[in-house]
Each structure stands twice: as C-alpha cells, then as structure tokens.
Amino acid sequence: MLVYALNRTLTLVPTLLAASFLVFMFIHLIPGDPASILLGDAATPEEVAELSRELGLDEPLWTQYALWLANVLQGDLGTSVFFREPVLSVIASGAETSILLATMTMLWIVLFGVPIGIVSAIRQGSWVDQATSGGAMLFASVPTFWLGLYLILIFSVGLGWFPSSGFPSLADEGGASNLRYLVLPSLTLAAPNAALIIRLIRASMLDVSREDHVRTARAKGLHPARVAIKHIFRNALIAVSAAFGFTFAALVSEAVVTETVFSLPGIGRLVVQSILRRDYPVIQGVILIIVVFYMVINLLVDLAYASLDPRVSLK
C-alpha cells in the first residue's frame, strides 16, 4: 500500500511541474512587461527595475522559471498589488471560508445524494425513480447563482431563517453558530453536484446489481435492503468514491460563483475580485494553490480507491 502510494505520488510530479510552468507563463502571456504587471500601475520605475533584476527577466525563460519555482517552494508567491501584502497570507485569509464551505457542501451531497441515489436504483423504473432521476437532471440544469438568489429571496428576505451574505470567522463572536452563514451557500453549491452524484450512484448500482455475486448474496436469503446496501452499494462505491473526490476538489473553484452571490470572503471570490482588480500576483498564486489542491485531492481519491477495492492494493 505504501509503495503504491509513493508510486502514485511520483507519477504526479511531471504533471505538477508542467502545470506550474503554465501558471508561471500566465504573467508572460499578459501583454506588457512582467515586472510592471506584477507591481501594478502605482509602481515607480526604480521598483520595476529592482523587481526585474530579482525575477531575472533578462535571463532565459528557463532560468526565470527556476527562480520563480525556488521562491514558490519557499512559500514566496509574490506581493499583492491591491493589498500590499504577501500573496500567501492573502490566500490564507480566504482558506477558512473556502474549506468550511466545501466541507459543508460535501455533507449535503452525501446526506441527500447517497440515500436518494440508492432508493432510485432499488426502485428502478418506478415513479420514485423517474421523479428523482428527472429531478436530479433538472437540478443539474439550474445556474447556481440563480438558485442562490432565490434561496436568499425565500429563506433570508422572506422567512428570515438564515443570513443572506458574508461570513464572520468561527474565531469571531458567535463561534460555531456562524456556520449558519454558510447554510444557504452550501445548499446552492450542493444542488447540481448532488444531482450528478445521484445519477452516478444509480447508474453504478444498476451495473453492479447485474453481477453474479449479487445473485449469490440473494441466494443466502438476505433481506433485499441488505443486499442493496452491503453488496450492491458497497461495490458501486468503488466507482462513486472517485466522483466524490473530484467533486470535492472542484468545489473550491466552483465556489467562485456562489461566494460572489453570497459575498463570502473565500478563495473563489478572491479570484474574481483579483481578476477585476488586475491583481495578477494574487491570480497567479490562487491558480497555483487550487491546481495543487485539486491534484492532491485526486491523488487521495486514487488511494481511497485502492483501499476500497482489495483487487487494486495488491497489484
């Protein structure tokens, strides 16, 4: 298992290097001199010259990349033009919101998606199945910001159950009860993803239910619900677990829209605001962090996959 994990991690390195090179090239693809782009409009010519020397802009591209990568590995992602702060600490300030939002969203996806998917598969062809399958596809067709706006309209403006925007840190006044700020955003973000999970669980369970070992399980006289959960769902989980991982990994960037609708101080909104402010060092830093996060989660998914399927771990 350990060897497998190490192997998988090593295969990630070339992709990670290539992706980081693309991120590095981002600044160079924007028309203009990288040093003045990174410093913003307010920079003096002296500052620009200073940064140019630091970045090695007169060196070949390859050396520049090496310099940049060395800095990144030491945690230096540059300085935000807008905040005048290190990019890393700007991103870190949004991390709490993003991670809590993604976690709460996953919670809804599992809570709603798994049971509905299972019922839909067990009752294949019934009206329950048709309603949930159709409903799931409908939810996957709704723009998230539209759903978010109407959830605000109904549950914040109308009923006053949940706050409509912002998110004070859990460390601030209110403590854990501040999580109520994330209820509507996480539901918004969960809707289309839960829909995909429902359809995936249904499809994989129907595939597994045709396998011979399910007949063996039924021949033992097991209750159909037990066959469905212990034998069909457990085996379908191997395929579905991958989707859980991808979904979670993509949530941080998918949250861009939701965080904007609910004015949440997360990484997603930071991306959009930085783009609108032309705060390129922050954009570059966020992309890099999200891509690394995305790949690490996908790696963890692979490892989880191996632990769910005894046939993989021993190869």
Partner: peptide
C-alpha cells in the same frame, strides 16, 4: 496538464 485545472478556473 490542462485537465489539472478545474473547468471554471481554466475558463476564468
């Protein structure tokens, strides 16, 4: 490598 970027992020 391109698929290492989440879809919406790549678009942005």
């Amino acid at each position: 490598v391109l698929m290492a970027f989440p879809a919406l992020l790549l678009a942005l």
